[in-house]
């Protein structure tokens, strides 16, 4: 019986590493505060495993054969993948994996009717894992990680309700299938508003971002599930904002918990609204 002892979610915009040095000072301070807080709390949580759910970004599978959820089963996760290095401009890292946890997640989700595809080799990681790793110092602090890379933009995309339901099943697996006393953290990686590859590439929908985080803080999951639709996500950034569905997996896994935002900033050149939240998990 595993315990979810920590849950956070945050943006992973590549500019947070590659374009950080040119950002305004107040933006840098907000970024430092958000990711520094998460990093410190992740270390303090003394996790046996951090399960990170984030957009795959078409990095690991062809469009014609795209899985909705891909689990990294390797004993070590190394990144960033070579082609993304110049674009991310962050340090190389090696993270401990937890193959036995990855196997338990895949098997447990299958028993609950959810297909999690797994690969034993190192996956190709871009900003999805790399940005949280280097900003929260997972590597320096030996945080063991199981990455779950998901489909946020290859149709048909699992929507907010499907992702919430997947999260409910994931929470059930953690609580009932993982070893007794295992300390588990959850990290929803992605968002907020952005439109990569679109004609509004530099657009950040700050109204949407605050609306979304306000709803998280209000804790009304019924309203969230009714209103944070794929259509609403597309309005605020086609093909990008929908990676907030990763946050719905976390929401489903933990249920209704008090949530507070750790910060927010909107800097044009990041091409993405950048925010972070933390849920209170209690004892």
């Amino acid at each position: 019986m595993g315990d979810i002892v920590l849950s956070v979610a945050a943006s992973h915009a590549p500019g947070l590493a590659g374009l950080y040095s040119g950002a305004p000072e107040d933006t840098k301070a907000e970024v430092d505060k958000m990711y520094g807080t998460m990093g410190a709390e992740i270390v303090a949580a003394d996790l046996d495993v951090l399960i990170l759910v984030g957009n795959d970004h078409l990095a690991n599978s062809r469009v014609l054969e795209y899985p909705d959820f891909l689990v990294g089963m390797a004993a070590e996760h190394m990144g960033p993948y070579e082609w993304f290095k110049p674009w991310l401009n962050c340090r190389d890292y090696t993270l401990q994996g937890r193959p036995e946890v990855a196997e338990a997640l895949i098997s447990g989700m299958a028993r609950r009717g959810v297909l999690f595809v797994g690969r034993r080799e190192n996956l190709r990681y871009d900003d999805n894992l790399s940005i949280p790793t280097v900003l929260c110092d997972f590597d320096a602090n030996d945080v063991p990680v199981v990455p779950i890379l998901m489909n946020c933009n290859v149709p048909p995309v699992p929507d907010q309700r499907q992702c919430y339901a997947v999260g409910e099943a994931l929470g059930d697996v953690i609580r009932n299938d993982l070893p007794n006393g295992m300390r588990v953290g959850l990290f929803g990686s992605g968002g907020l508003s952005h439109e990569p590859g679109g004609k509004r590439y530099f657009f950040i929908d700050q109204d949407f971002d605050h609306w979304f985080m306000d709803m998280l803080e209000a804790g009304d999951h019924h309203k969230l599930l009714n209103e944070a639709t794929p259509e609403r996500m597309e309005e605020s950034g086609a093909g990008g904002t929908a990676e907030l569905f990763a946050w719905f997996v976390v929401l489903g896994a933990i249920g209704n918990r008090p949530c507070s935002r750790l910060g927010y900033t909107a800097y044009d050149n990041f091409k993405c609204g950048v925010g972070a939240v933390r849920w209170e998990m209690g004892s």
Binding site: L58, V63, N153, P196, G197, G198, G239
Partner: peptide, 11 residues
């Protein structure tokens, strides 16, 4: 063309 891959093709 998928816009995400369009952005990568541009790069």
């Amino acid at each position: 063309l998928h816009p995400y891959l369009g952005g990568q093709l541009a790069r």
